[in-house]
Design a protein around this nucleic acid. Structure first.
Lengths: 152, 152
DNA sequence: AAAGCTATATTGCTTAGCTATCTATATCGG
DNA sequence: CCGATATAGATAGCTAAGCAATATAGCTTT
C-alpha cells in the first residue's frame, strides 16, 4: 500500500464524517437517520428477516432488532410471520414508511442540495463512480431467503 | 436539483456510513476515532484555540472542549495560555500525539487497506477527486488567530 | 425425546455528538 | 473607571448509534 493510498483512506474517512454530521444537522429531522437507511433497504429489497436486514445494513443483529422495533412502533414497518419457521419475522415497509422515506429524501436533498447544486456533469460522474467503487468494496453477501408468510 | 443528484447524495451518505463503521471495527483501536481526527487537524494547522478547533473539525464547541480534555489527559496534546486573552487556551499536539497519530494511520491503513488494495490508478484518481469535491463543499472558513503564548 | 443448532430478543455498555446553560474574562459607552 | 454587554470556554444532561455477551424460543437430528 502506497502512502498516497493511505492518505486517501484517511481523507475519505474524515470527509465521510463531515458529510454525515452536516446532513444530520441540516435536516433538523427528529427521527434518527438509521431509520431511513433501513427503510431504504426495505424499500429496495422487499421484506427481509431481521438477520438479513442486519447484514444488508452492515450492523449487528441486536442493533437491527432494536431499529426494527422502533420502525414498527412508529408504523413505518410491519412484521410478518414466516410459516416455515416461527422464530422468524419478516420485516416489511408500510405505506407510511414509503411516504416517510420519500419525505426524508426531499428534506435531505433540500438540506444538502445547496452545497452541491453547482456540480458539473463531470463532477457528478466522478462522485457517482467514487460511490460505486467504495460500495463494491464494502458490500456484504448475505441472504437466507424464505418465503412463507402470515401476518403477525 | 435533479433526482439523480438527490439519489447520489443519499448513496453518498449511506456509503459514508458504512465506511466509517467498517473502519471503526477494523481498527480494534480503543482510543476513539474523534481523537485522531482532531490530532490530524492539530498536526496540520498547528496550535489552535478550542473554538477554532471546533470549527475546523466541524463539531460544536462543547464537543471540542471534551475532546481536547481527553487529548490532554492522555498526553497527546497540551494547553498553552494566550497572553492577549486569558479566557483562551491554545491547543497544541505533543510529540506523543504525533507518534500516536502516525501509529493510528498505520493501523487504519492495515485495516482498510486490504479492501482497497486492488484499486487501479484510475480508480485512485477518481476517489481522490471525489474527496476533493466533497471537501470543497464542506469546508469551514473560521480562524480568529492569536499569537501570544505562555505555557499554562 | 434429548442435544444441539439457529433466529431473535434482552441487557448493559461505549462513543460521539448535541443544546442549554454557567462562569470568567474582555470590551465598550458613558 | 464602572457597569452592561459580549465572547470563550466549561459543565450538565440528553440522544443516537452502535457493540458484545447472553438468554430464550423454536427447529432439527440422531
Amino acid at each position: 500500500m502506497t502512502t498516497a493510498t493511505s492518505a486517501l483512506l484517511e481523507s475519505m474517512l474524515v470527509t465521510s464524517n463531515r458529510l454525515i454530521r452536516i446532513a444530520a444537522q441540516a435536516t433538523g429531522s427528529t427521527t434518527p437517520s438509521a431509520v431511513w437507511r433501513t427503510l431504504g433497504i426495505l424499500s429496495t429489497d422487499g421484506a427481509l428477516r431481521v438477520g438479513d436486514l442486519a447484514k444488508a445494513s452492515r450492523v449487528s443483529q441486536p442493533t437491527m432488532t432494536k431499529l426494527q422495533q422502533n420502525l414498527v412502533e412508529e408504523g413505518l414497518a410491519r412484521r410478518i410471520g414466516d410459516d416455515s419457521d416461527s422464530r422468524v419475522s419478516l420485516i416489511e415497509i408500510t405505506a407510511a414508511g414509503q411516504r416517510g422515506l420519500e419525505e426524508w429524501r426531499h428534506e435531505l436533498t433540500a438540506a444538502l442540495g445547496p452545497l452541491f447544486s453547482d456540480l458539473t456533469a463531470e463532477e457528478t460522474r466522478t462522485l457517482e463512480r467514487a460511490v460505486a467503487i467504495v460500495q463494491a468494496r464494502t458490500k456484504t453477501i448475505s441472504s437466507t431467503s424464505t418465503n412463507g408468510r402470515k401476518v403477525a
